[in-house]
Design a protein around this nucleic acid. Sequence first.
DNA 1: CCTGTGATCAGCT
DNA 2: GCTGATCACAGGC
Length: 194
Amino acid sequence: MTPAGAIDFDGSSDQVARELIGMTLLVDGVGGVIVETEAYDREDPASHSHSGPTARNAAMFGPPGHAYVYRSYGIHWCLNFVCREAGHGAGVLIRALQPTHGLERMAQRRGLSDPRLLCAGPGRVGQALGITREHNGLPLDADPFGLLPATDALPVVAGPRIGISKAVDVPWRFGAAGSRFLSRPFRQAALTSM
DNA sequence: CCTGTGATCAGCT
DNA sequence: GCTGATCACAGGC
């Protein structure tokens, strides 16, 4: 079984986003437990893929189980996992990690040492893990990526996604219930599972 | 606690 | 031109 074999990226992005909570993401051995994700889909007006393939979002229309990296607000690098069948344009944004591996390296890159602030937000995750344009389109089951199965089944909460203006009512933000490493707390446990 | 603003770029109207 | 799947910092309450 490959490291990424523990999850089925051919599934829908909301299901993958939920299943990723509790798994460990590493880039060059640096990373932690995924505690917050958001799902996006081609039918979703808030998704980068909504208007079809472009030079930027090409990876989203490539094979599942690969990375889609984009520049946010001209400054931050954000990491997504491509889902569903190739050509569909679905993905999961990695929004927050609980740092477990390479804390020193992350602190160095981020210019802070507070574990709670190292990976609490998609831009922060990108900076802490050293994500750049170079990672766009790379497979998640090979170097430098590593994806390890969850050791414990964490209770998952869902709620509305953050920082978007369209499809605000779609509850496609998922998180580890009660985690102190979220980008923002979940207002209420609208949905729980596992 | 909260609100405002700058940084800086790809895509869209 | 303007907007946005963001963050850090400044200032006010």
